[in-house]
């Protein structure tokens, strides 16, 4: 399968292609190009480092959307054991854009929620590219309440472009479903750890996307609006998303600075898809230490702290 090349990676991909070509030539014709190959390899490595070590916000958005990036399902398969999926909202249907289930993760029995993007077109159509309808969010709420009822910690994986924008979603109360989840999450009487693993698109992300801790992968983003939508509102031109993605301050580092996220999980150079194994292990460690510190807390105190944490977010003035 051809490697998916992100826009900003093109110079590197071209250089890598040259290297492969040179190696093939060398092997076929026995030209003894070892010196040239070594030089080109060094050049590739140099470019790889300069390209990836300081990604712009817009480049990170591209990394967060990379088709090979580990998804909720990959985390469950790798880190989870003894998985039992909970399906359906008991009112309308089962929305595959959201995973809900009983999962043992980081050595603890938990309720796990996650936006579920597909690995291929067929899966993506079934899962609506990870964009939930109200029934998906209501299934998530059902799972939250189940976690509370049986004292299981809640772990969520955030990876969505946003709640589904459509006629049926509006008819069934998309805004209502999101709001109810926010109220439920805010007061849930069990520890809640949210992990931003890819895209964090607005209300559809927030509906399962905050709690006692927010852990962000290095190249994950979380934003009030997609950079494209923001650009088309402000400039009437979605292609100016690179500018708005910087203005919106939506990267993991921005979120920590704004006091919204607690921790950044570093990714391998170039993105989590380059070395998923390392990222899985780092995410497991982050979840484990968050749960360790939360699970010992008295429930009333836990909920009060969460309320104060949410209530403290915002920058305003009370002066004249």
């Amino acid at each position: 399968m051809a490697r998916f090349v992100m826009e900003f990676e093109r110079p590197l991909a071209e250089l890598e292609a040259k290297l492969i070509e040179l190696k093939a030539l060398d092997a076929a014709a026995e030209l003894h190009l070892d010196q040239e190959i070594a030089e080109l390899e060094a050049e590739v490595e140099q470019l790889r480092v300069t390209l990836y070590q300081a990604l712009s916000p817009w480049e990170r958005v591209q990394v967060s959307r990379h088709p090979g990036r580990p998804k909720t399902q990959d985390y469950i398969e790798t880190l989870g054991s003894d998985v039992f999926e909970l399906r359906g909202d008991r009112t309308y249907g089962d929305d595959e854009a959201i995973f809900a289930g009983l999962v043992t993760i980081a050595g603890r029995r938990c309720v796990l929620l996650g936006h579920r993007k597909g690995k291929n077109t067929k899966e993506n159509i079934r899962r609506n590219f990870g964009s939930p309808h109200p029934e998906g969010l209501r299934k998530a709420r059902r799972a939250m309440l189940l976690a509370e009822k049986f004292g299981l910690p809640l772990v969520t994986f955030i990876d969505t472009q946003g709640a589904h924008p459509g006629l049926e979603a509006e008819e069934r109360g998309q805004g209502w479903a999101i709001a109810e989840n926010l109220a439920t999450l805010a007061a849930l009487r069990v520890p809640v750890v949210a992990v931003g693993i890819g895209e964090g698109g607005s209300g559809g992300a927030l509906a399962i996307g905050f709690g006692d801790r927010l852990i962000m992968l290095e190249n994950a983003y979380y934003s009030v609006i997609s950079p494209e939508a923001c650009a088309s509102i402000l400039y009437k031109d979605a292609s100016r998303a690179p500018e708005t993605s910087a203005c919106l301050q939506m990267t993991a580092a921005d979120l920590v600075r704004l006091g919204i996220a607690d921790e950044i999980v570093p990714e391998s150079l170039g993105g989590a898809h380059r070395d998923p194994g390392a990222v899985f292990a780092a995410v497991e460690r982050a979840i484990s230490s968050a749960l360790d510190s939360l699970c010992g807390q008295e429930v009333g105190e836990l909920v009060e702290k969460r309320f104060e944490r949410i209530s403290a977010i915002g920058v305003f003035t009370e002066g004249e």
């Binding site: 607005s202 979380y222 301050q249 704004l258 919204i260 977010i313």
Partner: peptide
Amino acid sequence: GMLSLMQM
């Protein structure tokens, strides 16, 4: 930005 999303 995110400060306003969190107001929700």
